[in-house]
Simulated scan of single mutants.
Amino acid sequence: MRALDWAEDEAALHGRPLRIVHASVWERFEGATPAEDLPDGWTETGLQETVTNAESRARQRRPEVRAHAEVLPGEPVDVLVQAGEDAFALVVGHRRHGALMRHLSIGYIGPGVAARAWCPVVVVGDSAAEGPSADRQVVLGVAEGTEADAAHVAFALQEAHARGCDLVAIHARGRRGMRETRHDPSGLGSSPAADALLSAAVPAEAALECGVVVHRQVVDGPAHHALLEATQHADLLVLGVRHRHGAIRRELRPTHHAALRHLPCPVALVGIRWPN
């Protein structure tokens, strides 16, 4: 329900309809799944009620959003990837703890969808705060090689503009960058290369065009530590995901998996090739 609420608020921000999808193995195999393989209290009727209740909840919370719920046959990742082919964004919940995740392996759905979907995928964890944060900021992770026209940069600027908040662009330097700083005769504690990377990735002209205030930060240490610190009160973290060479699937790196497991805010994984 937390992911549903986030998706509905996102639809309202951008003036878009909301499509609520449930992937049903029963629909695919016509009820062949034995009842003893299901968690206690789960039935086909119960799942249909969940979908109906989700649609009712969405319409009551945001009457201005055109919401529609449906049940589609197939495995969750396959269904969601196909449903998100022409979507503005695909939002999924991610339960980090509890017996239900261990029983159904729900933990794989978020990363599985993010690795294959062509639209931005937003993963809302069960520890995400309800509603926007008091600080109202969007955080953008900037890795080496990020260009100004990268899709995740454009997406982050768009999200910050829609929320009327600032964008914090962060680049975390590893041990190499920290060695550069220690040998920097200026003593300013900042690497010119890292500063140039952030300026090139999020140029002032793009921020001015979107009407977004951008704060650029270079942080020492591992990326997941820097992002954990920066997102304690953030509305959203945006990370870029590159495609493997010659493959359709995106390459989720350790930083992506760490973000999905530990960060306190929703995480948007955006393929570098995603068009504006």
Score class of each variant (00 low, 15 high):
residue 194 A to K: 02
residue 202 V to M: 03
residue 192 P to V: 00
residue 199 S to F: 04
residue 189 G to D: 09
residue 178 M to C: 07
residue 174 G to N: 10
residue 191 S to Y: 04
residue 181 T to H: 05
residue 177 G to Q: 10
residue 189 G to P: 15
residue 194 A to H: 03
residue 188 L to A: 03
residue 187 G to F: 06
residue 202 V to G: 02
residue 181 T to F: 04
residue 194 A to W: 02
residue 186 S to N: 07
residue 180 E to W: 13
residue 197 L to C: 02
residue 174 G to S: 08
residue 177 G to S: 08
residue 193 A to H: 09
residue 177 G to E: 11
residue 191 S to E: 12
residue 196 A to E: 03
residue 189 G to H: 12
residue 176 R to P: 00
residue 202 V to S: 03
residue 196 A to P: 00
residue 193 A to C: 02
residue 190 S to E: 15
residue 200 A to S: 09
residue 191 S to R: 05
residue 182 R to E: 11
residue 178 M to L: 13
residue 176 R to K: 04
residue 181 T to D: 13
residue 198 L to I: 01
residue 192 P to H: 00
residue 203 P to Q: 04
residue 172 A to K: 09
residue 201 A to S: 06
residue 192 P to R: 01
residue 181 T to A: 08
residue 203 P to L: 05
residue 178 M to W: 13
residue 182 R to F: 10
residue 192 P to C: 01
residue 191 S to F: 04
residue 200 A to D: 08
residue 193 A to L: 11
residue 188 L to Q: 06
residue 184 D to E: 13
residue 174 G to K: 06
residue 193 A to S: 12
residue 175 R to I: 03
residue 185 P to R: 11
residue 199 S to R: 15
residue 188 L to F: 01
residue 196 A to C: 00
residue 192 P to L: 01
residue 195 D to E: 14
residue 203 P to R: 05
residue 201 A to I: 06
residue 174 G to D: 15
residue 203 P to C: 06
residue 192 P to W: 00
residue 180 E to A: 11
residue 201 A to Q: 03
residue 189 G to A: 07
residue 185 P to A: 08
residue 193 A to D: 14
residue 185 P to H: 12
residue 187 G to Q: 06
residue 181 T to R: 14
residue 180 E to D: 15
residue 193 A to Q: 11
residue 203 P to A: 03
residue 177 G to T: 13
residue 192 P to E: 01
residue 180 E to F: 11
residue 195 D to F: 02
residue 198 L to N: 00
residue 202 V to W: 02
residue 201 A to K: 06
residue 190 S to G: 06
residue 173 R to D: 13
residue 183 H to M: 14
residue 175 R to F: 02
residue 183 H to N: 13
residue 179 R to W: 11
residue 191 S to D: 15
residue 192 P to Q: 01
residue 174 G to R: 05
residue 190 S to H: 14
residue 186 S to R: 14
residue 173 R to I: 14
residue 198 L to F: 00
residue 172 A to E: 09
residue 178 M to G: 08
residue 177 G to P: 12
residue 182 R to G: 02
residue 180 E to V: 12
residue 186 S to L: 12
residue 186 S to D: 13
residue 178 M to P: 06
residue 192 P to G: 00
residue 173 R to F: 04
residue 181 T to W: 08
residue 179 R to L: 12
residue 185 P to G: 07
residue 196 A to I: 00
residue 198 L to A: 02
residue 195 D to P: 01
residue 197 L to E: 02
residue 176 R to N: 05
residue 175 R to V: 06
residue 203 P to D: 06
residue 180 E to K: 10
residue 179 R to H: 11
residue 196 A to W: 00
residue 188 L to I: 01
residue 172 A to H: 11
residue 187 G to V: 03
